[in-house]
Simulated assay, not measured.
Amino acid sequence: MKKEMKRIFTAVAIVCAVFLFAVGCGKRVAVDPGDEQPAVEPTVTETEPAHTPWEPARTWPGEAEDESLDDTAGADLAIKEGRTSAPLLPVYYDFDRSSIRADQEERMVHNGEYMLDNPRVRVRIEGNTDERGTREYNMALGERRAMSTKKYLIDLGVAAERLETLSYGEEKPISFGRDELSWSLNRRSDFVIIQ
């Protein structure tokens, strides 16, 4: 019985090896060096390409020269990114990090000032991640992001009882691509006004 099992196993291994070898060796085409076409240098234009509807702006809100976060009509600010309630702004993170990036601190200050100016507003901070990593790990990372954002707002003077946290992990992406741009849009904390 052992010899028969050994023969079957050996036969299966040989068939698999031949199959893998055949798949790995694609048909190769010989190219005559005289048939090669000369390389054509692409031309580069100096104009900036127009943004398509799905392409995000190259600057964060508040960074463009003509846009100010200190606008006195803050309630009229028509910014809505992710699931964040206007006039609040979402905060974006580096891969596998939960600390507030330096380029996102202005957004945090804007959110803190809005909450201090509107003492009845309560906010749910929703931590999000991109799809990479296990579900459990991403839920924990989303929670760490929401908590670090909450701590930042508390340090700015916002009362802790006005802030709730929730982690969605990778469960509620806003961009469904499988590239760095899409992943970077999904690594964020949203600020949702709940009262």
Rank of each mutant, 00 (worst) to 15 (best):
M1C: 03
K2P: 08
E4C: 04
M5E: 06
I8A: 13
T10H: 15
A11G: 09
V12K: 04
I14A: 10
I14S: 12
C16Y: 00
A17D: 03
A17V: 11
L20H: 00
A22P: 00
V23T: 03
G26W: 08
G26S: 07
G26K: 02
R28M: 15
A30N: 09
V31P: 00
D32A: 10
G34L: 13
D35S: 15
E36F: 01
E36S: 11
Q37D: 10
V40Y: 12
T45F: 15
T47W: 07
H51R: 15
P53H: 01
W54L: 11
E55L: 08
P56L: 12
P56T: 05
R58T: 06
W60I: 01
P61W: 05
D66S: 14
E67A: 15
L69S: 06
D71Y: 14
G74I: 09
A75H: 11
A75N: 13
T84E: 12
P87A: 12
L88Y: 09
D94E: 05
D96V: 01
R97H: 05
I100E: 02
Y114P: 07
M115D: 00
L116K: 13
P119G: 12
V121C: 04
R122E: 15
V123E: 00
V123K: 06
I125T: 03
T129A: 11
E131P: 05
E131D: 03
E131H: 04
G133T: 08
E136S: 13
M139A: 11
L141A: 07
L141I: 02
L141Y: 00
R145S: 01
A146M: 08
M147L: 12
M147Y: 06
S148T: 13
T149Q: 12
K150R: 13
Y152G: 02
D155C: 02
G157V: 10
V158C: 01
V158Q: 02
L163C: 06
L166N: 07
Y168I: 05
E170I: 01
E171A: 15
K172T: 13
K172Q: 10
P173F: 10
S175L: 08
G177C: 13
D179I: 10
E180W: 03
L181R: 09
S182H: 04
L185T: 07
N186L: 06
R187W: 04
R188E: 11
F191P: 06
F191E: 06
F191T: 04
I193R: 06
I193W: 11
Q195V: 04
Q195C: 08
